[in-house]
């Protein structure tokens, strides 16, 4: 049986793909044109938050590569961190399915399916690691 640490490493790779994709989002979703309509402070907050999220994905990815045994239960801190990451991705699945508007998703059907499966994979891996690490 493939150990959970292997799947955590795979999850780290998937999150790196999300990081790479995040550099394409401004062009795909016309950030420049859209953000020109709001006040400068709102524009700055939007950009800073998107940088934050990219940094957080880099953290999750690094932890999964370098601290997989800890996330899988070797350390108590790692285990709780794994629970937080599991909740993060579990929350992101219904947002993708029910919150983001269907019009945009229909315009990008392949990307939508790929992202949904990637989110389901990430949520599953971290949930399994979190449950396994409890024992």
């Amino acid at each position: 049986m493939v150990p959970i640490t292997f799947w955590l490493g795979m999850a780290g790779g998937v999150q790196l793909l999300f990081v790479a994709t995040s550099f394409l989002l401004p062009k795909i979703f016309n950030f420049r044109e859209n953000l020109a309509k709001v006040s400068p402070l709102i524009r700055q907050i939007f950009i800073v938050h998107s940088i934050y999220i990219t940094l957080v994905l880099m953290l999750f990815s690094s932890l999964s590569f370098f601290f997989a045994p800890e996330l899988a239960g070797k350390s108590r801190l790692g285990h709780l961190l794994c629970c937080f990451i599991a909740f993060f991705w579990s929350l992101r699945v219904p947002i993708q399915l029910f919150y983001y508007d269907s019009k945009t998703k229909k315009e990008h059907p392949v990307e939508n399916v790929a992202v949904t499966f990637a989110l389901l994979f990430l949520a599953s891996v971290y949930i399994i690691a979190a449950i396994g690490g409890r024992s």
Binding site: F29, N34, Y52, L91
Partner: peptide, 16 residues
């Protein structure tokens, strides 16, 4: 903002 970008802003902020 466009509907999608508005939702993106709320999601980014919530996750932050």
């Amino acid at each position: 903002l466009s509907r999608f970008n508005r939702k993106l802003m709320w999601v980014y902020s919530g996750f932050t």
